[in-house]
Computed example of a mutant assay.
Amino acid sequence: MKKIGFSGTLDPITNGHMWVINEARSMADEVVVFLSENSAKKPKFTAEERKSIIALSCAEQGWNNVQVVIVRGDYTARAARKHGAEYLIRGIRTTADFDYENLIQQTNVDVLQGAKTIFVMPPRDLGSVSSSFVKALEGPIGWNWIMKKFVPGPAYHAWVLGWLRNEWELLWDYAQADESAINHADAWFARLTGATAYGGTARHYHNLDHLVHGLSEIRAWAANTKPSALDIEIVKQAFWFHDAEYEHARDAGAPSNEEASAQLWLGSHLGQEMDPAAALIRATDHFQEASIEHPLKAVLLSVDLAILGQDDEVYQNYARAIRQEYAHLPDDEYRRQRTGALGHLCRKAEAHKLFCDPYFAAQYNDRAIDNMEREMARLAGE
């Protein structure tokens, strides 16, 4: 078969969609993804954005025989015939899917004189994966780690950036801000999520995932403890910047990562009052925190350490990311340093001094001890 089509809204494209596209590749020389632009739907991404995400996702797999076409004002089956695809491929997950798709395929052929349909059944682990399923994951703590399992990398990156963008716009009240303030905030969002900060390729842990997880923790803390709007704002401001500057080793006499991040925040001129968040950023520096008092210090430190108390799968992802972050260390040296750091944190948790905020202590202290003890045991056995 020379050419086969695959159609959908694909908002976002999932690993299930990718499986169907790959099945099509095994049947035809060329695959055309027909991306529907349905005015009745309100997709998260524009058609052009979805086209780019799909193209990047296929390129990431090394698939150079996949083309993406946006369909506007036409039936997909008819558009497929116009592009030389005699067949469309569709994934069938349930009997309900089959009944629906069979009706569509009859309409495509008998009414529209369009492309015929080939049905394929995805493997069991992808049987429940759909765009609507993925969208429903967004929100609660850990949603990003779960979503990551079900979508290709470019789709995940785009979704996370969109989520972070929404958080950023709420923080700086874009709805009420003037054009100059919005442009200024836009530039800082691009800087913080870009290659020189959390979006950098060398950032394996202190990255966009870290931002999303921490902001989700702050959202849950705020919902459960009802702090003032000002306190929430200060914690969010500090968290956005507290790891913006990150280097493994700094020259003698150079400021710490946290101090450099505090200076970056002060230089951003984003807020009306900059000092409270700057002091809070400095309070996350273990060289300075003992001497810095701040009413929200326990909260921000707990947000930063909350990853230690997550379920096993998330914790394992975190542990692997930390190893990648310190890839410059030989295995023996890494095991020594990591075991020492975990032992210190574990002792603090056992003394109930790791999560000094009561909300986070109740959520994570016991699980953090279990996670760290298991990792130390694993490191000792390597």
Rank of each mutant, 00 (worst) to 15 (best):
E169S: 14
L170K: 15
W172H: 15
A175R: 13
A175L: 11
Q176A: 07
Q176E: 14
Q176G: 07
A177W: 01
A177I: 01
D178M: 01
E179M: 02
E179H: 04
N183V: 03
H184P: 03
H184D: 03
A185W: 06
A187M: 12
F189L: 06
R191S: 08
L192S: 07
L192K: 04
L192Y: 07
T193K: 14
A195C: 08
A195M: 03
T196P: 01
G199D: 12
G200A: 11
A202P: 11
R203C: 04
R203V: 11
R203P: 14
H204W: 09
H204D: 07
H206A: 04
D209Y: 06
H210T: 11
H210L: 02
L211C: 12
V212P: 12
H213M: 07
L215Y: 09
S216P: 13
E217Q: 10
I218T: 04
I218P: 15
I218L: 00
A220P: 05
A220V: 07
A220L: 12
W221C: 00
A222M: 01
A222T: 10
A222S: 13
A223D: 15
A223G: 14
A223M: 12
T225P: 03
T225C: 06
P227G: 05
L230Q: 13
I232W: 12
I232N: 09
E233F: 11
V235R: 10
K236N: 15
A238W: 03
A238C: 13
W240T: 03
F241A: 09
F241I: 01
H242K: 04
H242F: 04
H242D: 05
A244H: 12
E245C: 15
E245S: 09
Y246W: 13
Y246R: 02
E247L: 08
E247I: 03
H248G: 02
H248L: 11
R250V: 00
D251M: 11
A252H: 07
A252R: 06
A252E: 09
A254N: 07
A254V: 00
P255E: 11
N257Q: 09
N257I: 00
N257S: 06
E258Q: 04
S261M: 02
A262G: 11
Q263S: 10
G267I: 11
H269E: 07
L270C: 08
G271H: 08
Q272Y: 02
E273H: 10
E273D: 11
M274R: 09
M274H: 13
M274I: 08
D275A: 14
P276E: 00
P276W: 03
A277C: 08
A278H: 06
I281Q: 01
I281E: 02
